[in-house]
Amino acid sequence: MEHTEHIEHTDAPKDMKSKIWRTFWILLAFTVIDIVLYFMLLTTHSMWKNAIFIVLGVVKAYYIVGIFMHMTFERKTLKYTIILPMIFVIFFIALMIIEGNFTLSVR
């Protein structure tokens, strides 16, 4: 029996169902905000506009990964294993967009 240490499930909160639906409405709201902003900013083209949409995407990602994929209830080790590499990816996205602007300026 010493081999079968039972894992206590990092249990989902009791009101998981209401949490799920709340997350759904938040995601829907952010999608609507995305589209409204897109049409409001249709004629502006600048770096901060790109930044706004990417940040909104990251916020939605937080809710999907955190609540739907249960990440906020997991252990710190697992959180950092998955999230730390992705932070560098966001950095990479920003770098390549800046690089693209430079390519445009020398084209």
Partner: peptide, 15 residues
């Protein structure tokens, strides 16, 4: 990510 980063790069390298 690599696909989307490629998109971001090519998209911003056009007007």
């Amino acid at each position: 990510s690599s696909l989307l980063i490629a998109y971001g790069f090519i998209r911003t390298s056009f007007l």
